[in-house]
């Protein structure tokens, strides 16, 4: 290939090269920032519209929905956080946290133990076992919703938070096992041999050595299960709303998870737009905080292999 571009010699001497590099960057830089600005604005304008909307009265919203509220009205956020609707909001939040935590704990415990059995227990049918779980990836939870609803009614879990947790665990298991099995396999055999020489059996190895080592993998599947549970709408709708849940704890209303609660709130208070906006904005905060805190774990999850 020639070293000339459009008849102009590019590589006359070595010091020219970085200069050329710089030039390519400098002409495009303002455009890049402009594009970034447009994309960022596109992402956050709708969200900030709702957040700001919560600071308006309904009259203000009708007269000028754009721009900053004038004056700022705290009333909507106040009723959601400490006023009339706080029992609902905090209750839904607690219910969401409970459901998500129970899902994560069960998924991680069950998933890790199965992955360990497949990868390390020298079972005759470990391949079949893996295939059985991997086959679950074919079945999206959506298609099982009607029978799940009927089965939960038959075993009396309709209207119960466990009725949301257990099917979620079942449908999170395939991904968990598929991610964790290679992870467990990657832990060096020598470690198990060393442990066995030191008198550690299969179960002991699992609890004392494998669990601490598999932590990054467990965090990854845990985060996946948590996010799935946190955002779920269809299953809670069937189990809690259609199932007529009525769970109260210390004056908090735990009969809805947050997404379902937001949806119910919008239909119940459909005339009060700014109140809906305040409720929605507050409901979005936990997810944002969670992602901010977990971003590193999500990225690093699987790259953190066995150390030591």
């Amino acid at each position: 290939m020639a070293v000339t571009v459009a008849g102009k010699p590019v590589l006359t001497s070595l010091p020219d090269e970085p200069i050329k590099h710089k030039r390519v960057w400098s002409w495009s830089q303002p455009w890049v920032y402009l594009v970034a600005l447009v994309v960022v604005a596109f992402s956050i304008v709708p969200v900030s519209f709702v957040v700001l909307g919560g600071f308006r009265t309904n009259m203000q919203l009708l007269e000028s929905p754009a721009g900053f509220p004038d004056p700022w009205v705290w009333h909507n956020y106040e009723t959601v956080l400490i006023g009339d609707h706080s029992g609902n909001f905090w209750g839904f939040l607690v219910a969401s946290i409970l459901v998500a935590l129970m899902t994560v704990i069960l998924v991680v415990i069950l998933g890790t133990s199965v992955a360990y059995a497949i990868a390390r227990m020298n079972l005759k049918r470990s391949g079949t076992l893996f295939a059985v779980f991997a086959a679950g990836l074919m079945f999206p939870a959506t298609i099982a919703i009607l029978p799940t609803w009927i089965i939960l009614r038959e075993i009396g879990l309709l209207g119960n938070l466990l009725g949301v947790v257990i099917p979620q665990v079942a449908f999170a298991l395939p991904t968990t096992v598929v991610i964790l099995t290679p992870f467990v396999k990657a832990i060096p055999k020598e470690m198990e041999e060393a442990a066995s020489i030191d008198g550690c059996g299969t179960t002991g190895f699992f609890f004392r050595i494998l669990l601490p080592l598999a932590k990054p993998g467990m965090v990854t599947v845990g985060v996946l299960a948590f996010v799935g549970s946190w955002n779920a709408f269809m299953l809670p709708m069937f189990v809690l709303q259609v199932g007529g849940a009525n769970i109260n704890l210390f004056g908090l209303n735990l009969s809805r998870t947050l997404p379902l609660g937001v949806q119910n709130f919008t239909t119940q208070w459909s005339a009060n737009t700014t109140l809906i906006m305040a409720f929605t904005a507050v409901a979005a905060i936990p997810a944002l905080i969670f992602f901010l805190a977990m971003e590193k774990h999500i990225v690093n999850g699987l790259s953190g292999a066995v150390k030591g």
Binding site: S113, V132, I166, P167
Partner: peptide, 22 residues
């Protein structure tokens, strides 16, 4: 059994059984 069966029960009962039901 301890390592595999609890997960298998949950998984079969709430993935395969509902799909068979459907």
């Amino acid at each position: 059994i301890g390592f595999t069966v609890p997960a298998l029960i949950v998984y079969v009962a709430f993935v395969f059984v509902p799909i068979g039901y459907a």
